Structures are given as C-alpha cells and as structure tokens.
Amino acid sequence: MRTRPSVFDVLNVLVLTAIAISTVLPFVYVLAGSLASEAEIGERSFFLWPREVVTGTYRYIFATNGAFVRSLIVTIAVTAVGTLVHLALTFTMAYPLAKRRLPGRNLLLSLVVFTMVFSGGLIPLYLVVRNVGLLNSYWALILPAAISPFYLIIVKNFLQELPVELQEAAEIDGCTELGVFWRIVLPLSKPILATMALFFAVGIWNDFMSPLLYISDPSMWTLQMFVRQVTVSPDVNSTLGVGDPNIQPPEQGLKFAVIVVATLPILLMYPFLQKHFAKGMLIGSVKG
C-alpha cells in the first residue's frame, strides 16, 4: 500500500531543490556569459542562455602566447603530484595509528588533535617555508599542508574498522607489515582513497592563498592566481601576455571563460569518484 508523503517530506524536497537551483544558477550564468557577445553581456543583467553562441573568448585564451595554458598545466601538475603526496603521507601515518597495540598511540593522537585546535599562525608558517628554501617552488604548494589532521582522523577511523582477521591471516602466511598494508589494507580502502583523493585534489586546485604567499614569479602562477589577475587587472592584454596593442579581447566574456575553464576540470572528477564518495565519508567518520 502506497503511503502519501508527509508535509515534512514535501518541504524537505522543496528546500533542497531551492538550494540546488541556487547553487547551479551562478555557474550556468557564468557559462552562458562566456558564450555571449560583449554587447549582450552589457545589455542583459542576467541570462541563462545567450541569444547567439560565440566561442571567440575560448579561442582567444588558448591562442595567446601561452600564459593561460601554462598556468593550467602548472595547476594540473601540482594537483596530481600534491594529491599523490597527500594520500601517501596521510595513509602511511593513519595506518599505524589505527593499530591499538601501537606504543604511544594515545599520545600521538593527542598531538594530532592538538594541531587541529592550535597552530603557529600564518607568519610563522611563512618563515618556515622561507627558511627551508621553498619560496618560488611548487613544493611550497604541496608540503606545508601535506597532512591534514581532520582527514587523518577520518582515514584512521576507516582503517580501524577493517577486518583484523584478514590482516592477521596475512601475517600468519608470512606477509610483512608493509605487505599487509599494500596487499590487504589498500585494496579494501578504495572508498576512503577515492574520497580523500577528491578532497585533496579540490583543495589543491582551488588553493589561492599558498601561491599568493609563496610564488612571486608570474611565470609560475597557478590557475587560481591567473583567474584572480584576469578578473581584477585593468589591462587584460598584459595579463595574457599579448604584445599587440591592437588586439582587444572581449573583457567580460573573457573573465567568464577563464572561470569556466578553471572550474570545469575539477568538476568533472566527481562523477568518476561518486560511487565511493558517500561510503568513504560515512564509514570513516562514524566511529572513533
């Protein structure tokens, strides 16, 4: 027998639908603006579909002397390497902390939690990065935040819930601790691996503060720094590195196009990791 939906269910659906629409609309507007002409952008304050589709802005940013493409390649490389480094360090630290027999485990966990509440601050962090010689280095965008205490605890909780019997059986068969980790633990950790990879990749891709602090060479700019410079600079030609003063880019459409290209790659990652995402977050965060 089918039951009628309650008032709460109806309100819940309406509220969530409104939130979803309010989240998607700005991106749809930016996408429509990137495909519209400068005249239409000036005439219409808000639209979700251009009267005439114009792709000149995308051809322009990819046809310049490489400033935008270079920042895109830099961001892709830093995101890929940074995600691997974050995953490797987080899992290799979380695995021993998930062992209840580890000597000093409670002290180590207390120190991890302590760093979630207290930190040295921005200036001491900058001084450390400078003194170890990481300024104007891509490693400055990866190593200072290589291990997040919050994500470390989530991964530790997930690994703690894995069947101990499988690990003990592997050890009885002669498998080393490293072998257990590589052959047993990691294959069973695909949900949390996918979840953490998504979080780390999004965090590195969208990171604006680190390159702003540690990178002063414009040729080493990441995509977020480039987007910021394009949106605030009065001279778009100089930002793109175009030497011909006769070339006048479509400024508003150009800004929209740069934002779309900066958002789309990381947005396309989610469908490939979605099936592991919910499971990884739930299992990793319920028990401590």
Results as ranks from 00 to 15, higher is better:
N157D: 14
I76P: 00
P163K: 02
L188D: 05
L35M: 14
P249R: 01
E171I: 15
E40H: 11
V85M: 07
E52D: 15
N131M: 04
A20G: 09
P187F: 05
R70W: 11
L108D: 00
V164T: 13
V74D: 08
T90P: 00
E165W: 04
F8K: 14
L108K: 02
Y126E: 07
S148H: 09
E171C: 09
V227F: 01
T17C: 08
V28C: 10
V129W: 08
S148K: 00
G174P: 10
V230Q: 04
S233P: 01
W139P: 05
E52T: 15
L14G: 09
V113G: 00
G241P: 03
F46Q: 07
E43F: 12
V260N: 05
A67S: 12
S233R: 06
G179D: 06
R130G: 12
A98L: 07
A88C: 06
V53R: 06
D235C: 02
R51H: 09
A278W: 03
S216M: 05
L11D: 13
L111Y: 12
V28Y: 07
F226S: 08
V258A: 10
G66W: 03
L212H: 07
I61D: 01
S189T: 11
W221C: 10
P218H: 05
L141P: 05
Q167C: 08
F272P: 05
